[in-house]
Amino acid sequence: MTALARNEALIGAIPILGLLLGWQAAVSAGVAPSALLPSPVAVFGRVAQNLGDPDFLGHTAVTLYRLFVGFLIALAIGVPLGLAGATNRIAGAALKPLVRVLAPVPKIALYPALILSLGFDDASKIVLVTADALFPILLATFQGAAMVEPKLVWSARAAGTSPAGTLLKVILPATLPSILTGSRIALVVACIVVFLAEMITSTDGLGYLLVRAARNFQTVDMFVPLIAISAIGLLLNGALALTRKKLLVGFPEED
């Protein structure tokens, strides 16, 4: 880490620390009863305690399962569709207006319909995550593939690659940076949506934990799932950044 980066990391810690200190000060000063505002010490103590609790870990695992399956399905649908839409004129003409209409629809509003047709279990939540994660991936893939330098494709064609072969050997790798950018947005949305779906109807998962704590007025426990989903988001973002670094060695840097 360079001195500059270390300095910036320190500066970045200031507002977060300030927030925590302000929170603690408010609690100590008795601004609000602890039933409304528990102290940060109590909250983080509960988080640490929960990390060893199989029940909590089980709920976390359920949320992660829904998140990943939904995200991977979105990836498996979005990337091929995006590539097809950008490289095939007919596919593009059919895809564009559909995306134009479906992308701005708030998918969470579809959730009741998903519950009615798929039930209250995993399936409806996974489909909801897929529906929300699909469009960032699809759009980014489409955009990336549409902007691939045609001369890259020409170079491959001249070297004897078939038109279909260029899709896998040139367009897909050249679109990879865009796909990863789309995935990053999709993962954040997936975190948000899986949590909300679990809050709406569920018997397990982090979202359910929040609702359960709210019902029983256990304020400390309401903070725990929120901190957990934030940490999951951060970890996923970090994992994606690593993947990016590994997969995109040859591409120009982007921060």
């Binding site: 927030l19 954040v188 309401m222 799932p225 934030s230």
Partner: peptide, 26 residues
Amino acid sequence: AAMVNPLLMITYPVPKAALMPIIMLW
């Protein structure tokens, strides 16, 4: 930027609507 960025990073994946139960308390 260095000051605000980390705060943005940790709050982005939190579903804001999920804060409702807590905010409603207040």
